[in-house]
């Protein structure tokens, strides 16, 4: 009786493994060579845009647009090349916390810079 149960369990695991294999094949199709090449084209396009925009005088918006484009590029690299999009929630929480800490440091530094008088 117990032997039967064991073989049943093994069979079950086998089937689960096969099911998983099928599922994985599907997952690979979602992010095959094509997707990554498209992402790369997007990144090259954004580089071209940021270089072109730097030639146009946008005043104080220049730095903001440059940083905005760099952030979009980073999101593309992180989500697709670094597979964050397909990672479990814990990784996303990890990365989010780290970025919040970093942004807090920047904001606090600028509080100091803005309200310190004289600066140098």
């Amino acid at each position: 009786m117990s032997h039967l149960n064991l073989s049943n369990t093994e069979e079950h695991i086998e089937r689960e493994a096969q099911h998983e294999e099928v599922h994985l094949e599907h997952a690979e199709h979602d992010t095959g060579f094509g997707t990554y090449i498209l992402v790369w084209l997007g990144l090259v396009g954004l580089t071209a845009i940021t270089v072109t925009l730097s030639g146009i005088s946008l005043g104080s918006l220049t730095i903001i647009t440059a940083l905005l484009i760099a952030t979009i590029k980073t999101l593309l690299v992180a989500n697709y090349f670094m597979h964050v999009k397909f990672d479990t929630t814990i990784f996303k929480v990890f990365i989010g916390v780290c970025i919040i800490i970093f942004l807090t440091m920047i904001v606090l530094t600028f509080f100091d810079l803005t309200f310190r008088n004289p600066l140098i």
Binding site: T50, V51, S54, G55, S57, T62, I63, A66, L67, A70
Partner: peptide, 8 residues
């Protein structure tokens, strides 16, 4: 790249 090369 933008912070060092593209300031105008």
């Amino acid at each position: 790249f933008p912070l060092f090369y593209l300031i105008h």
